[in-house]
Nucleic acid binder design. Structure first.
Ligand code: SF4
Ligand code: SF4
Lengths: 133, 133
DNA sequence: GCTATTATAGGGTCATAAAGTCTTTTATTG
DNA sequence: CAATAAAAGACTTTATGACCCTATAATAGC
């Protein structure tokens, strides 16, 4: 029960884009260098973010990644879901249907966390961001 | 990012103890049968619950496991922590200390979930419990 | 004190997932 | 068409989860 490191990278990459890249696309090469991770590995996460509609990719010379949506719209939950998927954190192995008591409690707890993450926008941190590393 | 199945078993075992076993110790054999899991595997989880102080073990003939604390005191969080550990769900790989912006947000989100799980006591479900399986 | 019962401890196995690399293909600019 | 950059897929390596097996320790009842 831990968030993957990929999520950590994705959050940092997004924080960088939101803070420092208003419109010019940023290459995976630059991002990977900043984050200290290989390009190919990071590109997998960025591709997921593209598929989730958070960023936009531009291939070819001077290409890279650029925000797609409004900065203020992108929440932590959006990024986490893009990387980790949206499946529930808990599945009762007995699966007695929707009345499952234990499941109800844990799902609701999860919802509490997600609600907080949804209300928290990545752009809120941009002001205090001093650069990675 | 998922709760382990061991947590699921532990929650069910505890629900059983709280619901059906007022004072007589219940053997791992019976519990394992009810839950449809091997004794040796289940016993590891029960041992963790013992170490966490939630239940008490009685070895020897007619031994087994019995609640230690007051039924009303045992929360979902207690059980989950006993099995999954209390480590944070998220660790920023850069570790810029306590001012880490991203970390602060995720930790707070986690706290929201844990608060809900702490307020939710396992005994609240006992009334509606119809037996496992 | 002996035996049956029951928990505890530790190691071993197998499967799945996470973390990361390499190579090829596709798209774009100039 | 040449250089650049993303996307896709196959692959390795490592870590974790989900189990099983066996030996040891404690206790109750005879
Ligand atoms: S919590 Fe209750 S309803 Fe849900 S699977 Fe377990 S026994 Fe069934
Ligand atoms: S979120 Fe900011 S402070 Fe925290 S590790 Fe990343 S760059 Fe450093």
């Amino acid at each position: 029960m831990k968030f993957s490191q990929a999520t950590d990278y994705a959050l940092h990459a997004m924080l960088y884009l939101v803070s420092e890249a208003p419109d010019k696309p940023v290459s995976v090469q630059l991002l990977a260098e900043k984050l200290g991770v290989s390009q190919t590995y990071l590109s997998k996460m960025l591709t997921k973010l593209v598929k989730a509609g958070l960023i936009q990719s531009v291939s070819g010379v001077n290409g890279g990644y650029r925000l797609r949506r409004n900065r203020e719209d992108i929440s932590f939950l959006d990024i986490i879901h893009a990387i980790e998927g949206t499946a529930s954190l808990f599945e009762c192995s007995f699966n007695h249907g929707s009345e499952c008591l234990i499941q109800q409690v844990v799902i609701e707890a999860e919802r509490q966390m997600e609600q907080y993450l949804q209300n928290k926008k990545i752009s809120e941190l941009a002001g205090q961001f001093k650069g990675i590393g």
